[in-house]
Amino acid sequence: MEAAAIPAPAAQDDHHHGPPVANQSSRVNSEVLGILLFIISEIMLFGAFFAAYFFIRVVNADGWPPGAGLPVAVAATNAAILLSSSVTMHWTDVSAKRGNQAGMRIGIVTTFLLGCTFLFIQINEYLHLGFTPKTSASASVFFGLTGLHGAHVIIGLLLLWMSAVRIFKGKVGPANYKGLEVPGIYWHFVDAMWIVVFTTIYVL
């Protein structure tokens, strides 16, 4: 029943060489495709929390917990901070592609610091809100959505930290910027997601 011609040597002397280079069957690069798919997954995770928002705030029409109201101005400022970090991230990316070491370093540090500022203001907002997740279901939704986003900012910051380390060690350049591009895409996603969260929670 041995039908096929088997490349006989393949089974034995394979220790002196590595694997054959895989055929690239798509124009999309595998790392970029990977992070895009991961972001789809992340969007769905947010989607589930938006579903909670929908059921509790829209279907059951629960208001936000009574009190001074949500600090829209603070949150809007914070949104501006996070958005500007997207701009600096993009600048870092462009610098990397051009091999501009100084630009990369300044860009990644600025982005990182802007991210930290966002997180700091967000935590400060939590402490002065006047309600906690225990207050009501809508309070839980508020903390659920903003907290989930905050957790993503932390993950994004960790990725940025790794990129920063590699940039400062001189490992990133025009020929080798995947390690910056992928965290960059993720950071843009975190920023874009804040626009959605911000609009849903503070504006609508």
Binding site: A48, A51, A52, F55, I56, V59, N60, D62, P133, K134, T135, S136, A137, S138, A139, S140, V141, F143, G144
Partner: peptide, 20 residues
């Protein structure tokens, strides 16, 4: 942490769990 997603007393929605 005492969130109220599924606690009807706090305005939570039990059916929301099933949907998600």
């Amino acid at each position: 942490l005492g969130f109220n997603f599924f606690n009807p007393a706090g305005g939570g929605d039990v059916l929301m769990y099933q949907h998600v």
